Computed example of a mutant assay.
Amino acid sequence: MGIILLADDQRDSRARLQGLLEGQGFSVIAASSLAMAVPLAKSDPPDLAFLNITRSREEGWTVCRDIRRFCPKAKILLWVEGGPTEDEITLGREAGADEVVPEVRSLVEVSRFLEAASAGHSLTCPECQSVFRLQQMPVPGSRVEAQCPECHFLIGVMSQGQEVVTLESPFNGRPKILVVEDTKFFRAYLTDLLVGAGFDVVTAQDGVEALEYLTGECPDLVITDVLMPRMHGFDLCRKIKDRPETASVPVIMMTQVYTRMQHEGEARGVQGADDYITKPFQPSDLLARIWRFLPHTL
């Protein structure tokens, strides 16, 4: 790993880290802001991008995605002073980062993070038994396809915490999920999360639109909000379960309003919901719940 792109808007920490890296023989391209990182990466693609996103997480995710798009083989490390939260680690990986780490203070930490980013995850192809590396960790709880470089066999791969598990069989198509959510922002958020986890996604703004879709299509699973205009989520769930052609489709209900135990009891016992989750939730929690209902898609 020779060229490192270092983006840090804090002068002292940038100079300290640049000195540590150059002292180890790396060629360092230093940027005084995240905004400078993308054009520098495009003009001189790095082997590794080291980005301080402490002061601007949102810009950090965007810059990470852009660098990943222009430099698909580069390793990307994001660091957050004080340490990243679980949500920030998840968002960083969704943006294409290999690692999201705490503040870097010593050469030992630099070496450890570089080693972690370079390691990848070894997989054994069940078809030809060759060993290769999965270059990017899947989002926790998600399942993705990895292709053997020798025989091109597709392998189902699942992330469980920091471990990567090879599934017994490759995917039989991409599971399709219908997302019913009246809030545009959250509908887009769920779509990005699920597509990134390996699903096909169709969306509806409310229960009426969802039922129109279900007259001609049958998804593998439905995720629906509870409080929506035109049709309450409980009513939508009941109608899905009452129709023979969709009765077996799992329905996960989500809500930020109906959070008491009696609400969940009604959703499950009266309306037929298969699961019930309150907002806000961890992305990995939602993905884990989804996969409990989709063993037939493997």
Rank of each mutant, 00 (worst) to 15 (best):
D47T: 04
V164T: 04
T90P: 09
S118I: 12
D9S: 06
P250R: 06
D235K: 11
L154A: 14
D12C: 13
F132G: 05
V100S: 02
L236E: 01
K241L: 01
L214V: 15
G207M: 06
F26W: 02
C71E: 03
E150K: 11
W61T: 02
P250N: 04
V251H: 01
G82H: 11
R238A: 13
R230S: 13
R14L: 07
R243L: 13
V202I: 15
L286N: 00
S159D: 10
C237I: 09
F113M: 10
P175R: 01
A119Q: 15
V110N: 05
H296C: 07
E103P: 13
P149R: 03
W291G: 01
D182W: 15
E103L: 09
P84F: 08
V80H: 06
E245R: 10
G92P: 05
Q256T: 15
A74S: 10
M261C: 09
P39R: 03
T183F: 15
V249W: 00
S122D: 05
T62G: 06
F186V: 10
E264H: 10
Q24R: 07
V28I: 04
G272F: 08
L48P: 06
A247F: 03
T255G: 07
E59V: 11
A117S: 08
M254G: 14
A267K: 06
K241I: 03
L34Y: 03
V226I: 12
G25I: 00
V249I: 08
C148N: 08
V165F: 01
A197H: 05
L17N: 07
S13V: 08
R112T: 14
L211E: 09
E115N: 08
L123I: 00
L227G: 13
R105G: 11
D200N: 07
E264D: 08
L227P: 10
P175T: 06
P126W: 04
F70Y: 10
D285L: 14
